[in-house]
Amino acid sequence: MTAIGMHVLLIHLSGTPLYAAEIANSLLKLGNEVDALVAERNVDENYFNEDISISTVGISSNKETLLRSLSPLTYYRLLKEIKTIDPDVIHITQGFFWLNPVLPFLTSYSLVFTDHEPEETNDVTFYDRTQLYTWSKHHMRSVADSIIVHGEYLKSVLMSKKVPEDKLKALDHGTYRYYRQFDSRQDKDKNELNILFFGLIADYKGIDVFGEAIPAIMENCPRATVTIAGGGDIEKYLSDEVVSLDSVRIYDEFIPDNQVGQLFRQADVVVLPYKSGSQSGVLTIAYEYRTPVVVTDVGGLPEVVDNGETGYVVPPNDSDALASSILDVIKYPEKKQQMERKINEKVESELSWDIICEELVEHYNSLLRG
């Protein structure tokens, strides 16, 4: 039986803290005391259970953040906040360079760091591409007592970077339950077979390859529709022919939380045609909605897809294979329903945060005992 009752501080200082919130909510459910320390500009208390204490760090606009980073008071206040919370375990679920100067003063705590992108090849923001970001991550890896990665592939990447194997813990990445609260009662259009690409637009996402597959999909399945949704210049990756199709809907903007669920609920298949990558939160949202996926054989994606059962794994940069697998899902209802059942089994037995966090708590306890 999992030991419970510890005090955990989750620190998430970059990006939406939904990942931290899913872990926090499950840790609380398991009987632990949980605090969260998140960036001021990204905090949304709706992510977290009301019994979780939330503190904010003054990371706001880029200009304000840069100015504050020059002040020693910033680091003093951050350290003081952590010391006041005084947890048993500190789990950095998403770091930021403000943390690095205070890490040497936190050696009395068990320190855990989730490394989401060990390869460091697919970072898309300005900060992600700086040497400061690279140094910050390497420093966190060196001082952490344990590094969490989501999958054996990512574990092997860090081992190739000379990170000791006994410092690494591979866990499944749970599904994002949060979006369910925004589900509308709008029924799915049964006359459409919708293919969804969702997420931030970047070169490595393979949207151009997906675009090459779309004409063949439409030719073989006239009921097919395509939704491409995410912030970025989507149209530069697609031909004029594809952009002009009535069956292709493009939303080149950030999709707010209250609209995410509707997109996934309307989808018959979610496509991740990535040319490279480590993992994807998009895949776990698709699974939360029990929607089959077609992914490419890159990074840790194949570990999450039971090929032929919960979706398909195809070679990267292969538009023919991509089109064929998408058609295999949407044209055969019985096959799709069978996949949906398999996804449900997988989520219930492997990808529930409650199950994953039982193992995580055991890991925390092993660090405390050590």
Rank of each mutant, 00 (worst) to 15 (best):
M1V: 08
I4C: 08
M6R: 09
L9K: 04
L9N: 07
I11S: 10
L18E: 10
Y19W: 08
S26L: 02
K29M: 11
L30E: 14
L30A: 15
E33K: 12
D35W: 04
Y47L: 15
Y47S: 06
Y47K: 02
F48H: 04
N49Q: 11
N49F: 06
E50Q: 14
S53C: 10
S53T: 15
I54P: 07
S55V: 12
G58V: 09
S60P: 04
Y76A: 14
R77G: 05
E81I: 15
I85P: 04
P87K: 02
P87H: 06
H91S: 09
G95Q: 08
W98D: 13
L99V: 08
F105A: 15
T114K: 01
T114C: 03
P118H: 05
E120T: 08
E120C: 04
V124H: 02
R129L: 10
Q131N: 14
L132R: 09
Y133S: 15
W135Q: 14
K137G: 03
H139S: 15
S142M: 14
S146V: 08
K155A: 11
L158N: 09
D166W: 07
K167C: 09
L168M: 06
K169L: 11
A170M: 04
A170N: 06
D172I: 01
D172L: 01
Y178V: 13
S184N: 14
R185V: 14
D187M: 14
D189Y: 02
K190N: 14
E192K: 12
E192Q: 15
L193Q: 13
N194A: 12
N194D: 13
L196A: 07
L196N: 05
K205L: 08
G206T: 10
I214A: 03
I214R: 00
E219K: 11
N220R: 11
P222G: 03
R223L: 11
A224K: 00
T227W: 01
G231K: 15
S239K: 05
D240P: 07
E241T: 12
S244F: 03
D246C: 03
S247K: 12
V248I: 14
R249W: 01
D252R: 06
D252H: 01
F254I: 14
I255G: 11
L263F: 13
L263G: 05
R265M: 15
V269K: 00
V269D: 04
V269N: 01
V269Q: 00
Y274M: 07
S276C: 05
G277N: 04
S278M: 01
Q279R: 01
V282A: 05
I285K: 02
Y287R: 00
Y289C: 05
R290W: 05
P292K: 00
V298C: 06
G300D: 09
P302V: 01
G311D: 07
V314K: 00
P316H: 07
D318A: 02
S319W: 04
A321D: 08
D328P: 00
Q337L: 14
Q338N: 13
E345G: 02
K346P: 00
E348S: 13
E350V: 08
E350I: 04
L351K: 01
I356T: 02
V361T: 13
E362C: 03
H363V: 11
Y364R: 06
Y364V: 13
N365G: 07
L367H: 07
